[in-house]
Computed example of a mutant assay.
Amino acid sequence: MCVALPGKVIKTNGNLATVDFNGNIIQAQAGLVEVNEGDFCLVHAGCILQKLNQEEAVDMLELFQELEDLQR
Rank of each mutant, 00 (worst) to 15 (best):
I26H: 13
L16N: 08
N13Y: 07
Q50F: 08
F21G: 04
F21E: 05
V9W: 03
V19Q: 00
A57L: 02
G23E: 12
L61P: 00
Q50I: 01
G46K: 06
H44S: 14
T12I: 11
A17T: 05
L5E: 11
L70S: 12
N36F: 03
I25W: 07
C47S: 10
L16S: 08
D20V: 09
G38K: 05
F21V: 06
L42M: 14
L61K: 12
D59V: 07
V43H: 03
N53S: 00
D20Q: 10
Q71N: 12
H44G: 12
N36T: 05
V33W: 00
V35W: 03
Q71T: 14
L5Q: 09
L42P: 00
L63P: 01
T18V: 15
Q27L: 15
F40C: 01
E62R: 12
V43Y: 01
V9R: 01
K11S: 11
L52I: 13
M60T: 10
Q27W: 10
K11I: 01
A45R: 11
L63D: 13
N13H: 07
Q27G: 12
L49Y: 12
F64Y: 13
N53Q: 01
G31H: 06
Q50D: 10
A45I: 07
T12Y: 03
D39N: 14
C41G: 02
L49E: 15
L32G: 01
A45N: 15
C47G: 03
A57N: 02
D20A: 10
F21Y: 11
N15Q: 07
V58K: 15
V3F: 12
G23C: 10
H44P: 04
L61Q: 14
L63C: 11
C2F: 14
E34N: 09
M1F: 10
L16M: 08
G14N: 08
V43T: 06
Q54W: 05
V19F: 04
E55R: 11
K8T: 08
D59F: 11
N36S: 04
C41S: 05
V58L: 15
L67G: 09
Q71M: 14
N24G: 04
V35L: 06
K8S: 04
G31T: 02
Q54V: 11
C41A: 14
L61W: 02
D59I: 08
I10M: 15
D20N: 15
E37C: 06
L61E: 15
A28T: 02
C41F: 06
A30E: 00
Q71V: 11
M60D: 06
Q71D: 14
E37Q: 13
E66L: 06
E55A: 09
V35R: 01
L42A: 08
L67S: 05
E56W: 02
A28Q: 06
T12R: 07
P6G: 03
L52E: 07
F21N: 05
C47I: 10
N22E: 14
L42W: 06
M1L: 08
E62V: 13
I48E: 00
A4Y: 03
N36R: 04
F64Q: 10
L49S: 11
T18H: 05
N24K: 15
V9G: 00
L70F: 13
Q27M: 13
L61N: 08
V3A: 10
